[in-house]
Amino acid sequence: MKTTVIGTGLIGSQLAAELTARGHDVTTASLSSGVDLLTGAGLDRALAGAETVVNATNSPTFDEQSIAFFRTTVGNLLTAGERAGVRHQVALSIVGVDLVPELDYYRAKSLQEELLRGGPTPYSIVRATQFFEFMEPTMSWTSDDSAVRLPATPIQPIASADVVAALADVATGAPLDGILDVAGPDRFTLDEIGRLTLAARGDRRPVLVDDRAGLFAAVPGDVLTPGPGARLATTRYRDWLAAAN
């Protein structure tokens, strides 16, 4: 089966390798290969012969401009996919994305899902929780030399490799015409995972609970954790940290 993976970042590059290892014919598409989702340039060539398309792209910004980005790029991808006879459109999204309208980027991703559901092609949406790999960048937003400030937001993070495995399974199966949540096995608060991360690298700065700090300060309750029926991965954050340090 031929699959086109749109995007060659953290997820897209791993997904292309995983699908290839499973014996599938994979084409990758990104700006570096001459495919521009904003203009549609190169899409017809990238989708030629593809049965499935996996959209693992990201907006270059996380502000209000991301809404226009997804409106344009998803529209171009669905139109080109229909021309090419694509039979399954898969998108990577975020657990709880439709429950945090205060965040521009989450509203943009919700729009992406809405456009996919209303499009001409059977679809699958894989919503993942926060990636292990993004924990340190998240902490850096609210850190200084003396302390790290984080809200006590509940999260259930997942290794990117486990997200890739779930995406590969969905992409090679029948369209869900719905949503699959994927998450890691353990639930933490964001300040707790901050302490674990600092301890693993020998950083003695304290983590202070500040419910106004950072991007996730706007997130209410436990909306970033998966609901019933989620696919839970087996990689644990503590084990991943130990292997990475």
Rank of each mutant, 00 (worst) to 15 (best):
F188R: 14
D177H: 07
F69E: 06
A199P: 00
K109C: 10
A91S: 15
A16G: 13
I67K: 02
V164W: 07
D211G: 08
L19N: 12
V5E: 01
I158V: 12
A165D: 15
S124A: 10
P206S: 10
S13V: 07
D181L: 03
T225G: 10
K2L: 04
D63S: 03
T39S: 14
P226E: 06
A56D: 01
G194F: 07
D36A: 09
A165N: 13
P137Y: 04
G7M: 08
R204H: 10
G184A: 07
P228C: 08
S66R: 09
V86Q: 09
A17K: 14
V97Q: 02
P206I: 08
M139T: 15
A48I: 11
G194M: 05
V54S: 07
E82N: 07
T52M: 11
F188M: 14
S140A: 15
A199D: 13
E133H: 00
N58L: 12
E133C: 05
P175W: 13
A46W: 01
S33I: 01
A29N: 09
V74F: 05
G85H: 03
D98I: 02
T73V: 13
T57K: 00
G40Y: 03
L43A: 06
I193N: 04
T27P: 04
P101N: 08
A46C: 01
L37A: 11
E113S: 05
L196W: 12
R236I: 06
A200W: 01
F131N: 03
A217R: 11
A233Q: 03
F132R: 14
A168C: 11
R127L: 03
T8L: 00
F69C: 01
V5P: 13
T121N: 10
L31I: 08
E136R: 15
A84Q: 14
I158Q: 11
L78F: 12
T189L: 10
D144F: 02
F216W: 01
D36P: 14
D98V: 09
